[in-house]
Design a protein around this nucleic acid. Structure first.
Length: 571
RNA sequence: UGGGGCGUCGUCAAGCGGUAAGACACAGGAUUUUGAUUCCUGCAUUCGGAGGUUCGAAUCCUCCCGCCCCAGCCA
């Protein structure tokens, strides 16, 4: 799967038109501007792929810029995690990582410029008073009593704010726009507030911090961004973005373009909700493989290429949508189908004794690492008298369509021999504990010289050729397509079987030194990788990234029902 | 009942006045030492609705309907 150019979308149309008009001297510069207050998730990957993708495609560049204007919520650990995640996804930003905090001095000067133009004033209204003065959606706001403060006094007060002479909340700096604007964002928005708090990067240098609306457009302008892509909820802020850039001597005037954020069904994509799942221990941390965080999905076995491909496939538009996670899974499958080596692992082992195989004898058989790609080579798998097959691959009263093992039936063991089931052994409770089979020496490697056909081919592992492993089977985190459906508390819709731990699995020996996060296809069951945190050569722990498509499971009448889809679900 | 957006197949999504791409899903079929993969085939006479302009409309105009966002000293 190769990374192609970004699928056509309305943003590319705009950029192409700009290029034709010769706007920005033919330059295209974008930016990905995360706030370092949490971990990156799939929603961010859409923005990352879009911004970096466009930068690359138009021979421009894309800056990584931390929007770090609120020290109350931001931490260095998030900065580090975000850098790692963006890098992992496969993007580079050259030498420099940008920070809005790098511009605090310039931003401060721009604020003074605004004050001098009588376009900003220091306001003493309390938070509650300010809310009252702001008006409502249908009623205009009222001017603050401080709105006509003199330029000199504003300058003096703002300087005092900066020097730390006031308590938090005592004063704010506001843009002087229009308290009667139908757009609430234009009703004299706050652009600076006092926060007596150390900043992860500027330490105690500042006790006033600029607000998003003031910071963002100016940071864009300082960096020479040409197209500032953000999500739909900022549409109402665009007039403010433009107002600030127009009123101040900004080096250029980037264009803000909004697109719809990504939503995925059967999961949540908001920092607040993800945080709740983590803090209330519904999952084991930000990198829990069930979470749609990049850290989680990575640990689960997703590849950067599959996510990039996914982000391209879903496209970019202004329509709010909820994408089927099935599509994400499919992108992973298509990447891994091509690149993952094949191995054998038995999730729920059922002991099989080959009664006509000599005790103590082992035999090495050739197995292809990728049947469709001989370049990936082959390996040896060990056959012996005692082997294990999947419990699901045996049925005592098997229907005709069951192409697997049953009393008297013959199947092929992949790359090994044909075996026939002779006897079923059970314990006192009626549980099947062992199968006695015979093998046909003439079928070595899996071919039958007499041309006889066998319907099923099973994966297997021998006692001597395998090691124990623990396997984490992950499923969708929520039972409902819309986790918010029919409840005011989305945690009530959590899927209790989102993680099933198998303690007694066995995998072929070649997997002992598997590299963490490198995915393998366990033939016939799915794609797995060793857990980067829990696994070691002494105790292998595998995570299932995604199952293989399973048409048998689909036609099987019984079995665990899939989570239901809820149509048009509402809260 | 202020302002800003959005409505094209089950889910995404191209389309920009010349007669509905593609992907996933779904349904058939072929090949198969993974019930996988791969490969064929089918799947919107119709674009939220109603009018209008035009030789011609998903694309232009009018009205209506539905959904989303905004009243943090968050981003």
């Amino acid at each position: 799967m190769e990374d192609e150019n970004i699928k056509h979308n309305f943003i590319k149309t705009i950029i192409n038109e700009d290029l034709e008009k010769g706007k920005n001297n033919g330059q295209v510069v974008t930016r990905f501007p995360p706030e370092p207050n949490g971990f990156l998730h799939m929603g961010h990957s859409k923005s990352i792929c879009l911004n970096f993708g466009i930068g690359k495609e138009f021979n421009g560049k894309c800056n990584l810029r931390f929007d770090d204007t609120n020290p109350e919520k931001e931490e260095q650990k998030y900065i580090d995690a975000i850098i790692e995640d963006v890098h992992w996804l496969g993007f580079d930003w050259g030498e420099t990582i940008h920070y809005a905090s790098d511009y605090f001095h310039q931003l401060y000067d721009f604020a003074i410029e605004l004050i001098k133009k009588n376009k900003a004033y220091v306001c003493a209204l309390s938070a509650e008073e300010m809310r009252k003065y702001r008006g409502t959606l249908t009623e205009p706001g009222k001017d603050s009593p401080d709105r006509n403060r003199s330029v000199e006094e504003n300058l003096k007060l703002f300087e005092s704010m900066r020097k730390g002479e006031f308590e938090e909340g005592a004063y704010v700096l506001r843009a002087k726009i229009d308290m009667a604007s139908p757009n609430i964002n234009l009703r004299d928005p706050i652009i600076y507030r006092i926060k007596k708090m150390d900043h992860p990067r500027t330490g105690s240098e500042w006790c006033i911090y600029p607000m998003y609306d003031f910071t963002h457009g100016l940071s864009d302008a300082i960096e020479g961004i040409t197209h500032s892509l953000c999500t739909l909820e900022f549409q109402d802020h665009r007039p403010l973005y433009d107002w600030i850039l127009d009123e101040v001597s900004a080096p250029c005037h980037p264009q803000q373009i909004e697109f719809a954020r990504m939503n995925l069904n059967f999961t949540v994509l908001s920092k607040r909700k993800l945080q709740k799942l983590v803090e209330n221990h519904h999952v084991e941390g930000w990198d829990d493989p069930r979470l749609p965080t990049l850290a989680g999905i990575r640990r689960r076995g997703y590849t950067p290429a599959s996510i990039r491909n996914f982000c391209n496939i879903i496209g970019v538009s202004k329509k709010e949508s909820r994408i089927d996670v099935g599509l994400l899974e499919d992108c992973l499958r298509s990447d891994l189908n091509e690149h993952a080596p094949r191995v054998m692992g038995v999730l729920k082992p059922l002991k099989v004794t080959i009664e006509n195989w000599p005790e103590g004898k082992t035999e090495a058989l050739d197995a292809a690492n990728h049947p469709q790609n001989p370049d990936m080579g082959k390996r040896e798998v060990i056959f012996s008298r005692e082997i294990f097959i999947e419990q699901d691959d045996f049925m005592e009263d098997a229907p005709k369509k069951f192409f697997r093992l049953a009393p008297g039936r013959e199947v092929r063991l992949r790359y090994a021999y044909f075996i026939t089931c002779k006897e079923v052994i059970k314990d006192d409770t009626g549980q099947i504990t062992e199968l006695i089979c015979t093998y046909d020496p003439a079928t070595r490697g899996g071919d039958s010289p007499d041309g006889r056909k066998v319907k099923g081919t099973l994966h297997w592992v021998s006692r001597e050729g395998s090691v124990p492993a623990e396997i984490n089977l992950y499923d969708r985190l929520f039972l409902n397509e819309d986790p918010e459906a029919d409840t005011d508390d989305f945690t009530k819709n959590l899927n209790p079987e989102s993680l099933v731990v198998l303690k007694n699995s066995r995998v072929e020996k070649s997997l002992v030194n598997a590299v963490p996060e490198k995915a393998y296809q366990f033939e016939r069951t799915g794609y797995f990788c060793t857990d980067s945190k829990e696994s070691s050569p002494d105790k292998l722990v595998f995570n299932r990234a995604v199952t293989l498509r399973d048409t048998w499971a689909k036609m099987k009448p019984k079995g665990k029902p899939r989570p239901k889809k809820t149509k048009n679900a509402k809260k």
